[in-house]
Amino acid sequence: MTQPLFWGNIEATEKETIMQYKLLATMASGLEALTAREIRDLGFDEQTDNGKVYFQGDEKAIAKANVWLRTADRVKIIVGQFTATTFDELFEGVKALPWDQYLPLDAAFPVEGRSVRSKLHSEPDVQAITKKAIVDKLATVYHRRGRLAETGKTYPLEVSILRDVATLTIDTTGPSLFKRGYRIAKGEAPLKENFAAALVMLTNWHPDMPFVDPTTGSGTIPIETALWGLNIAPGLQRHFAFENFAFMAPQVLQDVKDEALDAADFDRELDIQGFDLDPKMIEIAQENAKQAGLGQTIRFKQLAVKDNRLDNDQHGVLVSNPPYGKRLGELDAARTLYREMGQVYGDLTNWSRYILTADLEFEKAFGHKATKRRKLYNGTIRTDYFQFWAQRRH
């Protein structure tokens, strides 16, 4: 049997019982270091793998991670992990786990199955056998016969088999963490909120610097910048799956949100601007910022890239997610925009400029060579984050 990192989901002290869970945060490929840093900043030790960051904590850790993580997708509890090369091994391994410590008798527990590079490659069979094993375990513990009613609260479960190692998890998040709750409208190809936050966190911006997004669309990048700059937890406005879990104390989430409100610096003045050529997108961006409580914090304005003049006497940061030109006939238009960006922003030596695009020939159109390129995935699209660093201050 393979033991995972931080093995031992539930521990007890002599004075009082403190539930300690092995937790797993998932994120887009390439963002692991950012999420790991966020988890360390929350006060937890972490260990990082591809698309995953492991850490350990109690009920409050579950709530804090969901409320505070800007770049992650989900926070999961790892119930157990073991090697399974046959369906019998899978069934017995799942049944041996302490499901009764998590699931009440009436729990609804949908099971999702995934299998990658494993002998048990049929995901429907993996899912069905896992479900049956959990039912058998609960029926044995609760002394029930036949099917379980599953009329109670929902506990989303996943069985993931990677290279013959099965990992059983409970999703504490529900809808992905990128769904902050403020975006009531969007454009054709909006960035996910957590990906936008990651783009900002990969820059050298800090709250006393001006920030500009010249192709703002629905305003996600400036909004995420403002949330970060004001230290506003991204999960303040939303609900989570763990709120319905029997083993989670109801007051935990409210306590964490109260602490997050106390930590926010609502009075801090920020210089954040978002521009777009489309006046309808500016209206959408303003509505989204208002919904986020940032209507007076961010300035949005209809403005074409070619007409945008920034003050090079300031040291600022520019982040842009321009059109990629992925559709037939659109690449020429996108590269025309890139050339305009190069003409307007290329010589801003006091500004750090960060531009995300799937066009790997971007530098030719922009007319300048990037200081650094970072490979990221915007959903399933391979993109490069072209970074043009400002000259150092003297």
Rank of each mutant, 00 (worst) to 15 (best):
residue 7 W to C: 10
residue 12 A to Q: 13
residue 14 E to L: 13
residue 15 K to S: 13
residue 15 K to L: 11
residue 15 K to V: 10
residue 22 K to F: 09
residue 51 G to E: 06
residue 51 G to T: 07
residue 53 V to Y: 07
residue 58 D to W: 10
residue 69 L to M: 14
residue 71 T to L: 05
residue 73 D to W: 02
residue 74 R to V: 09
residue 75 V to S: 10
residue 83 T to I: 05
residue 95 K to G: 04
residue 96 A to R: 08
residue 105 L to G: 07
residue 112 E to A: 15
residue 112 E to P: 09
residue 115 S to P: 08
residue 120 L to I: 10
residue 127 Q to P: 02
residue 129 I to A: 05
residue 134 I to N: 08
residue 135 V to F: 02
residue 138 L to T: 01
residue 141 V to F: 15
residue 143 H to C: 00
residue 152 G to W: 12
residue 154 T to D: 10
residue 156 P to A: 11
residue 157 L to P: 12
residue 164 D to E: 13
residue 166 A to S: 10
residue 169 T to F: 14
residue 171 D to M: 11
residue 188 E to R: 13
residue 212 V to L: 02
residue 222 P to E: 03
residue 224 E to P: 07
residue 224 E to D: 12
residue 228 W to G: 01
residue 240 F to R: 11
residue 244 N to G: 06
residue 253 L to V: 14
residue 263 A to T: 02
residue 264 A to C: 04
residue 267 D to A: 09
residue 272 I to W: 05
residue 272 I to E: 02
residue 277 L to V: 14
residue 279 P to G: 07
residue 281 M to R: 09
residue 287 E to V: 04
residue 288 N to I: 03
residue 288 N to P: 05
residue 291 Q to W: 04
residue 298 I to Q: 00
residue 300 F to C: 01
residue 301 K to E: 15
residue 304 A to K: 08
residue 308 N to K: 05
residue 308 N to D: 10
residue 310 L to V: 13
residue 315 H to R: 15
residue 325 G to H: 01
residue 326 K to A: 15
residue 333 A to Q: 00
residue 342 G to L: 00
residue 344 V to K: 09
residue 347 D to L: 09
residue 349 T to I: 11
residue 351 W to T: 10
residue 352 S to N: 06
residue 353 R to C: 01
residue 358 A to S: 15
residue 360 L to D: 15
residue 362 F to N: 05
residue 363 E to D: 09
residue 371 T to H: 14
residue 373 R to F: 11
residue 374 R to D: 10
residue 376 L to M: 08
residue 382 R to V: 11
residue 386 F to A: 01
residue 389 W to R: 05
